[in-house]
């Protein structure tokens, strides 16, 4: 990742805990892949098991919009 790129970023806050490992999530670089397209993001993830938290507004907002523009009528 280079510095001049803009990422979709979600701050972790203090209240996101990995249910499996019981430790707080930390902001981590990740890549969304969809139909051969990559979307670099920074999302909360568990430093132990690697679980990435995808907030609802990303899934039902931006990701759904991406899906829609790729849909034929």
């Amino acid at each position: 990742m280079t510095d001049n790129k803009v990422y979709y970023t979600v701050e972790t806050g203090d209240n996101l805990i990995c249910q499996k490992c019981g430790i707080p999530l930390v902001k981590t670089e990740a890549v969304f892949e969809y139909l051969n397209n990559s979307f670099p993001v920074e999302l909360p993830a568990c430093p132990k098991c690697g679980f990435v938290y995808v907030p609802e507004d990303l899934a039902l907002g931006k990701v759904l919009s991406v899906e829609k523009v790729l849909e034929d009528k």
């Binding site: 790129k5 803009v6 993001v41 523009v69 790729l70």
Partner: peptide, 20 residues
């Protein structure tokens, strides 16, 4: 461009609409 202020999702959506 190097100066885009859009995140990759927004940029992708705009480019996809334009390129379809």
């Amino acid at each position: 461009s190097c100066c885009s202020t859009k995140d990759p999702f927004d940029e992708f959506i705009e480019n996809t609409i334009r390129d379809t």
